[in-house]
Structures are given as C-alpha cells and as structure tokens.
C-alpha cells in the first residue's frame, strides 16, 4: 500500500473551503499548501491575506496569517518581513491576493514592492473580475467581457484596456521571478505547482520579489459550469493572458 495523495499537512484538519463549487481558489490553496509542506515551511511562514474571496485562505491554511486592508497585502508583507529580519528572524512571507486587490486598488503597493525588490512572494488569483462583491469589471477583465458593470462587454472608450500583471512585474528591476500559470487541466496544475515552488525558493534564496499570477475560474460570476469555466480559460483567457515565465533571474 502506497499513499499517492493525501490532504496536505498545512491544511487544517476538518476544514472545508467556503468557495463556490468548482472555484479554482481551492486548487490554488491546495498547491500552496503542498509546496509549503515540501519545503518544510509551515512553522516559519506568515501568510498575508487580502480582501476578496482570497481572504478565506486563513480558514483552511494552517500557518500564521494576517489580514490586510484591500490592496495593501504587499505593504503589510513588507513590514512583517522587515520587522522580523531586524529581530534576526527569517520568516517566510507571502501574500495571497485577487486580481482586483493586487492590480487595481493595490497596484501602487504591488508594483513598488516589486521595484524595491522586497524579498516576499505574491500569489495573484486572476479570475478577471471582482468575485466576492458580485462580479464587477476589474483591471484584468478582458475586452468584450460581460460583467455586472460592463453589461455589453468591456470597451476601450469607456473602460480602457486591461493590465497584464505578470509582464508588468517582470519589468520591475527588483523582481526575481514572474510567471503566469493556469489550472484548467492536469498538465497546467502540475506546472502551476512547479512555478509556485520556484517563487517560494527564490524568496528563500533572498533573490527579491517573486510573483505568480494564476488564471483562475469564477464559475458563479462567469455564469458557467466549472467545466465550461476551464474551457473558457483554455480557449479564450490564456490567449489574451499568455502563460509562461516572464522573468527568472536564475535563468537569464
């Protein structure tokens, strides 16, 4: 008998996710927990949650967590990392944020943390809308995409263009790693875990700001089944937001 899969040690026993059925937030948190286990980081980790569906991270992830105001996760993580460092403690600090949180209200904090080369990791769940508040248009909503606040689809005249977050972070001199991954099939789930692990390892090596943007489903607000949501990511969103590694200081 060999255990091929079991619930990660860093997931609280008997916890259940409160995400909607089929939501990729659950897959993303499972991968983060697996990487924390594999790198043996549970004891030294401080996770910084944000506003959005991402906040439910701390219901399930069994590490020290702190909640930050909307958009400020990278600023809070900066303070935690630096204050502990000043005390001689090497804490592992990562943020878990939505696309609205990271790239709209928090864009200043996010970009400047990358520019400063802050030695933290940020995970950004890009589901192309403000999921928690009912699916409004966000900074990453694709051109033509219908949301509750773009009822005939995003247009350039009124809403302007969406942001390609991973590419922007890659342009910051202080970033060590920036990748965009997806979770729509097994191959991509395996790759997503690999890139999260690399981002975490770059922080351990002290290389600077590491970043993973995860193209994720929001079946409820997209009004699609979990399966069709994955199809949308595969066929539409990953064409607009190409998957790949945009910065990797160890492979330049």
């Amino acid at each position: 008998m060999q255990t091929i899969f079991s619930t990660p040690k860093s997931i609280k026993e008997n916890s259940t996710f409160t995400f909607c059925p089929g939501c990729d937030h659950g897959v993303a948190i499972k991968l983060v927990a697996q990487v924390i286990d594999e790198l043996n980081l549970q004891e030294e980790t401080i996770a910084v949650a944000s506003s959005g569906c991402s906040v439910f991270l701390y219901d399930s992830l069994d590490v020290d967590c702190i909640e930050s105001p909307h958009g400020r996760a990278c600023a809070v993580a900066t303070g935690i990392k630096r204050a502990h460092k000043a005390q001689g403690n090497n804490k592992f600090v990562f943020t878990y944020q939505g696309d609205g949180d990271f790239a709209s209200i928090g864009l200043g904090e996010s970009l400047h943390s990358a520019l400063r080369g802050e030695n933290i990791t940020a995970i950004c769940i890009n589901n192309t809308n403000y999921g928690m508040t009912g699916g409004q248009l966000g900074p990453t909503t694709a051109m033509g995409q219908i949301t509750t606040t773009s009822q005939s689809g995003r247009n350039k005249e009124y809403h302007g263009f969406p942001i390609k977050t991973a590419e922007h972070i890659a342009l910051c001199e202080g970033s060590s790693f920036s990748a965009r991954v997806a979770l729509y099939d097994i191959k991509n789930i395996i790759n997503a875990k690999k890139q999260i692990k690399k981002a975490f390892e770059y922080q351990q090596k002290g290389l600077g700001f590491s970043f993973v943007e995860i193209l994720s489903s929001c079946p409820t607000n997209w009004k699609l089944s979990p399966k069709d949501s994955h199809k949308k990511i595969q066929e539409e969103l990953s064409k607009i937001y190409p998957l790949g590694i945009f910065k990797d200081v160890e492979n330049e």
Partner: peptide
C-alpha cells in the same frame, strides 16, 4: 490506477486520499 488526477483537480480537497496497492 491510482493516478491521483481526481485528487489534483478537486477544488475542495474532498478526495482526501489516493491509495495504490
């Protein structure tokens, strides 16, 4: 075949174990 693909895709970690024997 204990490939664990089901456990990998489950968003709710409802597939709690995959055992090969």
């Amino acid at each position: 075949i204990a490939c664990a693909q089901c456990a990998m895709v489950c968003p709710d970690i409802a597939i709690t174990e995959v055992i090969k024997s």
